[in-house]
Design a protein around this nucleic acid. Structure first.
Lengths: 199, 199, 199, 199
DNA sequence: AATGAATGAGGTTTCATTCAT
DNA sequence: AATGAATGAAACCTCATTCAT
């Protein structure tokens, strides 16, 4: 009959929060933010409507929370660059890990894309995204320079577009049977010719 | 105050419809379908709320109408293929006209993308889109075969992805200063080597 | 089938607004602002809940509107002072008209009192009230000086308090059989001795 | 961690109750009963929300409790009358102690007034108040008769109104610089002329 | 005694749609 | 064709109260 310990409480809290967030991601991604009602999130999470407001101040804060988490993951692929080695290998690794990231959590990416293509409202989010994109472009360009690709800047834009386009198609248009692996390999392959020869 | 002639009536009708549709495209594209209210559309169109229902049975039918119009335009670039000539040229033309189409009506494309990334509901629309995409892929593949590009099917997927990715970036991420022209030329250029030599 | 004329519209609007405002005054006065639900107002007014928001942006704006109207009436008794004549008569008139004002619309005054005794929130309203009170005090003092009442300022405070106290008792504590007229006359009577003698 | 003795327990209970009641008075008085949430009371009292329900069955019972306590204090001034002596002195004492009561606990009185001006619901409370008022009126009348004031009943009403009016102004309208003492003395003073001459 | 997570009824507000003119 | 008042379902959110620990 004693109150729960802080650790017990934290566990309970974490469990409920997770249930809510997962339900929200699923529904936001599938039907869009506005078309998803708090009721439906609560129902899917198996909790009472009121509890949701115990954990999140509002619907929009719930979204914010999810987006913040999602975007924080995005920087991870960048780590690939710290390593020494042939830029072609680094580029390959970068592309691989980027694709892997999306493949591992399609729902989250669906949500991100749908949010990105939506709000003039969520300017803050868009800014984060823009910066991230800028980061990618710079790294691509840097590697292309190392690889002696002609027009490295333009090639960076093109690669970024190709990757996002593939993702888009993979996620939305043709979820069944999209030859993701083959295309990924193609993309990586095209830079093979820039590999430095070993002596 | 004599009754208007049928022709005048028809004109009035067309004008009102156009005003409504334009207002709707603008708002749907900017704020999303659900976040846009009928009131705001009517206000932007400069008509009374009630009148909107004379022209469109419901909000969703208004959307449908817009989407139908938008998608019908998409087929036009395909015409380029009927012409005889070097497939490299045809491909270039196809790419050019596709880009031109988006550039000429960004709002419409923003709307299309935002819808595409949204509804499990609008399955019908998604089907149309899928078919369209399929069409593009087939034509690309066909041309690549003519051009003797190795792995024509894969290359078709890649090109489609690149084009959509570029559009996406152009429309959303970096609206200012996106080097659309240069990238477009790059994309076209890469196939120049497959041009048939004239005798 | 032509749309209503502006005049017709204004009539309809005024009718609905009045219905809503009357219902709101009644309920706010009886149960307090917070304890009164929008639903109950709409029900009492005989309209749909949604319509209320057609006329008032929010519950609190509805209250504001009512208060503004109510407070604007308050200045009227002051007119009594412009007239020439014995200050004792003017005072009598002022007291009479103040009481009459409350008697003629008890519900409104109940509401005003309940609001005044409630919100730290509605600071704006309280300021208006304070100023009004100040105005009364000054006029009372002015008349008392003319009447050569000793300690005119203090007497002003006392009269103001007595009047508000009588109102309070009349409105709340003992609505049945409260001897309002007699008390009013008593209050007026006590200043008779300051009447100037005619030559 | 030995179990507490019953006496310790009782102390703890009393302390918690007091904390809750004080928090509640403060908040009810400031924001009104309905606008004050149980959460905010618990927060201000520094306890958990659930605990509040160990001490009070419901929010409304908590209010009841406070009101009961508050009203029980009101009878105390009446004691002054048992004493022998000049009725003018007794009246003076009665007025003094009544004012003192309010001055010593403004918050409580704010609450009482706001409650009184609010609920048709709390009829029971209003009845108590009415009875109390009746009691005051009778005592006033009784003293006025002893003092040979003409129209003692009417004068009783007027005095009661003046006192409540002064309180009201003191509590709400003009908290800063309200000349409470002077007015009180004025009120007392006006009855000086009815003092019996000593032989 | 004490905690705070959890519930659910009910509150305010929005908005697609209908209706009378 | 055109208007805008009116409706009512459903959205978001609050909060008194209960419950498990």
């Amino acid at each position: 009959m004693a109150p729960r310990t802080p650790i017990q409480l934290e566990k309970v809290r974490a469990k409920s929060r997770t249930k809510i967030i997962n339900a929200a991601i699923e529904l936001f991604a599938r039907k869009g933010y506005h078309a998803t009602s708090i009721s439906s999130i609560a129902a899917k999470a198996g909790i009472a409507k009121g509890l949701l407001y115990h954990y999140f101040k509002s619907k929009s804060e719930l979204l914010d929370e999810i987006l913040k988490n999602s975007l924080s993951e995005v920087d991870e692929p960048m780590q690939a660059l710290m390593m020494p080695g042939d830029p072609v290998d680094k580029m390959a690794l970068l592309i691989e890990s980027t694709f892997a990231m999306v493949q591992s959590d399609i729902k989250r990416w669906k949500l991100l894309v749908s949010i990105m293509t939506q709000y003039e409202v969520l300017i803050r989010i868009r800014k984060i995204f823009s910066k991230m994109m800028q980061g990618y472009l710079e790294i691509f360009e840097h590697l292309f320079k190392e690889m002696k690709v002609p027009q490295p800047k333009l090639e960076a834009y093109r690669l970024a577009a190709t990757i996002d386009g593939v993702m888009l198609h993979y996620i939305y248009y043709l979820p069944d049977g999209y030859p993701l692996e083959e295309i990924k390999n193609e993309i990586i392959q095209q830079y093979a010719k820039y590999r430095k020869k070993k002596k």
